[in-house]
Design a protein around this nucleic acid. Sequence first.
DNA 1: GTGCTAAGAGTTTTT
DNA 2: CTCTTAGCAC
Length: 723
Amino acid sequence: MGGPSTNRSGAKSGKTGSGRGRSKKAAPRARLPKMNPEQADAVKQIHGPVLILAGAGSGKTMVITHRIRQMLKFGMPPGAIVAVTFTNKSAREMKARLGKMLSRKETRGMVVSTFHSLGNRILQKEIECLPGYRYPFSILAREDQESVLADIYRGLKLDPADARDSGVISLISLCKNSGLEPEDFAEQRGFEAGGDLFGEIYRRYHKNVHGVNGVDFDDLILLPQEIFRREPEILAKYRRKWRHFLVDEFQDTNPAQYNLLLQLVGSEKQLCVVGDDDQSIYGWRGADVNIILGFEKDFPNSKVVRLETNYRSTARILEAANSVIRNNPKRTGKKLRPIAGPGEMLHGIIGADEVREAEIVADEIKRRVFTENQMPGDFAILFRTNFQSRAFEQELRNRNIPHHVVGGYKFFDRREVRDMISYLRVLANPRDETALMRVINRPRRGVGEGTLAKISQYILDQDEDHRPDVYTVLELMSETPGMIPGVRADVVATLYEFLELLANYRSKFSRATRLSPVLNELIRELNFEAEFRREADNDNVVKARMFNLSELVNMLSYMEDNWDESVPPTIFDFLARISLMAQDQDPDEDEQRGRVQLLTLHVSKGLEFPVVFLTGLEEGLFPSLRSLEESQENGFGDAGLCEERRLYYVGITRARRELFLSAAQSRRKFGEAQIVELSRFWDELPEGAIDWMIRETGATDEEDQKNTLTNLLDGLGSLGESE
DNA sequence: GTGCTAAGAGTTTTT
DNA sequence: CTCTTAGCAC
């Protein structure tokens, strides 16, 4: 299956309904008997440095996997090959593709992972050479970062509540990812009075995270670099082992990741990067398009291959895509060439409000599913922001159309799941204070805020240089009653029991051959069920929560069953996997197929669907208000708008056969309807490309009134000005 | 220390 | 509109 000469047309056959086109019209995608010259050229370039500029739908994944096969054929050992992707999903997919093409033996030792997993892999082995870090370290999630920050705010006499939404965490992350010192970063960002304060917060943040033996996501990229700088022989070891690098979605690389890559690649430059500057949509996370644009400068003798033939979409869809992206300056300037015929026109929908928009979309899907026999899985509804999914979910549910929201509410954000994970974190790393604090009174054991405050105060009262960590204090307390005045004896006794429980399970976990039964036992011993009963008035809620916990056990068990390393997995391995999995767990991917997919534009990158609904094309929503403001503010021209446009381009190019574009005339914001303007992006489509399906105008009565009122006021306003 | 009610606040995108 | 939090009674 999928040999070198049987090109599978390069389109991904991933999780969506693609390839199951049981619909009446044949998909436009052409099946090539063999690779086209550009693709063949790309596959041949097994020595770096190579830059493959791969337009959307140009058979990128196929080229990558075949290139790897080619490398193996020429005797490169699999263990020397490292393929880096941006998301776990694409890492999984690449593994699956390689697995089909190659035997297990042929791929043994090959690394296919995300940047973050790669960093984690290095840290697991090497972190102890950095002072103050020990092996099972904790990977801090967003919530943990917030609580670290809240502590700092308290210390600085700022409102700890601001630690939540002040965007400081994003700033810290952006700063780390840009590879800048906080001072330089502050200067570059043009902070005025706040500059020093930010530096101070940043410094304390790093110190505190380090203090709990924790690393945040960005540290997974940064700390390996520090190790390599301090210990050149460790770097040399990795360079001997890993000699060929391949990076997918290179346009999403940020400076920190690029630097790590440069370190690892060294002077041999056995590096192949694949990407599309037009699909760079993670600038807000530090990704820098200039890295891909400047690749040829950084690697002067690099070979450049462009893949511009598109096997995915109809000519009309590609015309729209080309017409839109042409508005961006600063590109490598690719143009997608269709293989397929013109196909249908683009369909336009304008609903009176967001509910009408959703109704029209859902009706159209319903009609096609029930009368034209199309599969629900052939449809995708894309939107800019997560909250837009609600209306669509509701309308699909009303019509009994199976659907699935990709990456919406997250399993790992559930409170009970986070509680259980916190237990595991404390067991793996007793210094993990955020986890310890979270778990200390869960389920409720009568250790309240008062007690915790006293403990914190006790720690603060100790000499700065040898402050004990919370865990140590708890141990001391339970040995010496009355150590902290005001903490009742029965509370001390409870804490003692709590510590015993932890000690007990720590040894159980370290002795057990399988971890999942122990986790199950822990859940039962903690008696979460009783806790849930007490909290919830609804039996289903209790069941759902228990189900989530058992799902966690299942995940662990599944991991143990599919572990391909010589040493069995530890709790830490499980935790690391969970943290890195973050967003994209689809435990039952097969089951999701055959459902209408609802997803954000960002999540949609790399996927394709026969029929795409690109929704919410309204000014301020898409392009988003923030991006527009940013563009104006910082004098960097219209960088924000350009990124939104690339996002638009990504959305358009997801469609294989048909593309619907939609907007609402008015949209409720916090429950209040507001008239919105059509997005400027409508105007960037080719002239006459749209076949209007529905174009509702006046909306409901009350909205109509508002509308006329606004017009009236506008009129008065301009009259006044002209006077 | 826990549980209820009322008021308030907030939606970009994610490894 | 929905979710979180502050304040008060037990």
